[in-house]
Design a protein around this nucleic acid. Structure first.
Lengths: 240, 240
DNA sequence: GCAAAAGTGTTACAAGTACACCCATGG
DNA sequence: CCATGGGTGTACTTGTAACACTTTTGC
């Protein structure tokens, strides 16, 4: 036993990994939520998550839980952007017992992934703006996650994680506009992205035809860069 | 009991709060370390920290532990900059039992604070560059904390937390140069800081005489701003 | 032809960089 | 009078914002 630790003197702590999973669908930011089946908060929506098992880290638990909830296979989940947010440890955050939650943010490309089987609980992608009254302190966690993702778009190449393997600059710009709820100048956005080494790289071959009107767009892949120097700052004064 | 949680099926988790406490002393970045008295890692240096108690959050535990280690009174500790870093949860990070550590970074103004009583263990401010072979994964935690503090100097007004209540712009610049291990252009630094509303505010009265040579410097206090728009970017290509 | 989306060019302005230079003080 | 640190001025370069304009497609 560690010095200063008397197991009998401490009520047990449980450790959970909770996830704020974002995706962009049809120009709207969505969050993956599950409906709780039991008290407390039965019938409320909550973030997906679960207990960290004895032989796994919080990161491993988060990936495992996400695979279970979404039905994605392990390889697909491994490829996703995952990021530890922070840990929520207020003593009363769960009325039943002492639960410390390590929160993660994850980004899904906006594909028509149906929610596979997984747990019996109902799960759905809910528009971010329509989310209300989550269970526990999950509303707070979700708000923190949203702020973090928005901030990270400024100085990292994160936005490509919201896109399928091949995408157009218009789609990439849509990610920024959706998460920031703002409108960007297309010519400037384009120059900025292309001027950043390793942010995106053009794919050879015929341009993208997605059924819509307008000129077909060139296709791009995510590049090898991670950081964005200089940053792509979000317009401050005028939020759309 | 929460659904899906069977206390008997899980070995107990212990939760600790560990601290990376930085201060600038005589132009060098220092970290507060404690010497371990017991196995494992007896005789090694480690980050200060301790177990989260049943009725406190990890943040409260961190502040309590810091007060105990440094001998600072509670009010002084409450005024310090505190920031949750991330949580370290690898199953084998402590060989004795399952310990999840919520890590924090804290900044002390560089005053000649002697280390008060506190625990029996030896504690010291160690130059950051001289730190080697910390116990557990504390080396990793400390490196993460250092990177985070350095990054935050760029886009927040954090640097004033390293300074006493009144300081000169030269001292503030010294904080940046010490943490980043670089040299900044004084005129540009000055303009940048003064151009940022609420970063610092000048104190009336006679200029600062600190015994040294040179023109006496005007004194400043930390302002009310928290963020730095636009950021004060660290020079990239030429470190020092 | 017209709307819609992609892509190019240009201009005006703000910000960051790299200096040269003057000021006040202690030794 | 000179070394040292504080403070001002300025030219140069880079990055951003705003906007006009051309191209290629579907209807």
């Amino acid at each position: 036993m560690p010095d200063g630790y008397d197991p009998a003197a401490f009520e047990p702590f449980a450790v959970t990994a909770d996830l704020a999973v974002f995706t962009v669908r049809e120009g709207t930011l969505h969050v993956l939520l599950v409906e709780r089946g039991e008290e407390p908060y039965a019938g409320s929506w909550a973030l997906p998550g679960g207990f960290v098992r004895p032989r796994e880290s919080a990161e491993e638990a988060a990936r495992r839980e996400l695979a279970e909830e979404t039905g994605l296979d392990a390889d697909a989940v491994d490829a996703l952007h995952f990021e530890q947010l922070r840990t929520y440890s207020a003593p009363d955050r769960d009325p039943r017992m002492r639960v410390v939650s390590v929160a993660f943010a994850a980004l899904l490309p906006g594909l028509p992934e149906p929610l596979g089987g997984g747990d019996a609980a109902r799960a759905a992608y809910v528009p971010y703006g329509a989310v209300r009254d989550l269970a526990f302190d999950h509303g707070r966690i979700l708000a923190d996650a949203h702020r973090r993702i928005g901030d990270k778009l400024e100085y990292s190449c994160l936005a490509t994680s919201f896109c399928p393997p091949e995408f157009t600059l218009g789609e990439l710009q849509g990610v920024y506009e959706t998460v920031w709820d703002t409108v960007l100048d297309r010519p400037n956005f384009r120059r900025k992205v292309l001027a950043t080494d390793g942010f995106v790289e053009q794919v050879d071959g015929p341009p993208r035809r997605d059924g819509g009107r307008g000129k077909p767009a060139a296709r791009y892949r995510a590049g090898s860069a991670v950081a964005l120097h200089p940053p792509l700052l979000r317009p401050e004064g005028r939020p759309a």
